[in-house]
Design a protein around this nucleic acid. Structure first.
Lengths: 233, 233
DNA sequence: TAGATTGTTAATCGATTAACAATC
DNA sequence: TAGATTGTTAATCGATTAACAATC
């Protein structure tokens, strides 16, 4: 029925959504693929191709209605449905996620936070009380959260992931630096901060090398020049 | 001089590094591209192609020495050089980054954390005292940090990014949901949590649709079957 | 109607996979 | 030496870009 959309396209959708959200806030009513492409630093062709995976949202000679396109992409991203989120791990990262207002605005409702540490249990994050891990099973089976965010040490992430999936959870937002091997009906999205930092590190070095190469080239050019000057003498 | 490596390859490097680190911990001495490909769920061909962008690390008939390959990829990723990191924003996210031990192990040293909020200034995170934003300029110019992590509201991220770059910073790890437009000598790595969550949301819906389609197909098949049964009567 | 801009097909480019000769 | 497995070239696949007819 619905064709499979490539991950390359899906990765770009939230970015389109963000830009359209900004335009909308500025009360821009319409935008052409060309204008948007210039702002976003992509090709207009790509924007049109991407959007046409989901249907024709534009109008020839006019472009795209910002409000409409924003809403439609929101629907494609599933932001029109509410997502009840449970966070496992109430360390800094878990708390950061729990407190991040942007999520709530987009329909991601943090419903509960769990931790093993006795000193954290009962503490409040915003208006959410931290619960004991021992209560997790009952909670998950009864409340059927849509998403479980794993913000706990990698030593425990695998086990907890397997557990919550066996209790009926179908979507995992994983912050632990491990690969989760889960049944294929389960959706996993990873946030691997260490990998991100390593890519940054790679690019720092690459840029350094690039600059050194540039300087070397300059130097060589200068030498060749002076040599040819010598030759001419 | 050195050829440009595609971002697709660079994205995979940290994952290779992680797997090799695990093998190393298990005291596995050698591994073939085939074995590694099975563990990692990629093709052996891709592994060999990826590694050969940087040189021949293996040996025909033998495979790769785990320890050696691990070290070499580490070097490629720039993990053999120390990175001094400054975090801007001492909210939950900033604190989570500051406390994340994995980074320190990989040579990313959190040297300082800054915030504007008076109630946070002077507070300690681990053994790092939170400093006032007013001291940032002097600190950056004197200490020349290698990386600045932006863990502050998007309203301020753009300004702070421009500032620190003008003070000599060349690498930004950006957690704010904005696009930073910086001079091309500056390396930027983004962690857009909202986008990650939206992709998860997209995939949740896609999977739902898939399952519905599956059920529909079954139903139709059943109908066709019963109809043909009727026809046969 | 003329001008603008989409939706979509075709061409190009790049990344992945397959194949195999080189070699340990 | 025979077997294994790399490094690398060639073939395939998929994603991006270009082009343009359709149409608002």
């Amino acid at each position: 029925m619905q064709k499979v959309i490539s991950t390359a396209v899906i990765k770009r959708l939230p970015r389109y959504y963000r830009y359209l959200g900004e335009l909308r806030k500025k009360e821009v009513v319409r935008i052409s693929s060309k204008e948007l492409s210039e702002r976003m630093n992509v090709t207009a062709s790509q924007i049109r191709q991407d959007l046409n995976n989901f249907g024709g949202f534009g109008q020839q000679g006019y472009g795209y209605n910002v409000e409409y396109l924003y809403t439609e992409i929101g629907k494609i991203l599933g932001l029109d449905q509410e997502h009840r989120v449970v966070i496992i791990g109430a360390g800094n990262l878990g708390q950061a996620i729990a407190n991040y207002g942007d999520f709530a605005r987009r329909g991601f409702d943090i419903k509960a936070v769990f931790d093993v540490k006795p000193e954290l249990i009962g503490k409040e994050i915003g208006d959410i009380k931290i619960r004991a891990m021992s209560e997790l099973k009952e909670y998950v089976i009864e409340q059927k959260p849509d998403i479980v965010a794993l913000a706990l040490p990698k030593e425990h992430a695998v086990q907890v992931a397997n557990d919550v999936v066996s209790w009926g959870v179908n979507a995992i937002w994983n912050f632990a630096p491990v690969e989760l091997r889960l049944p294929k009906h389960v959706v996993v999205e990873n946030v691997h901060l260490t990998e991100s930092l390593m890519r940054l590190s790679y690019n720092i070095r690459a840029k350094q090398n690039e600059q050194q190469a540039g300087e070397l080239a300059k130097k060589l050019a200068a030498e060749v020049k002076s040599e040819s000057a010598v030759t001419k003498e």
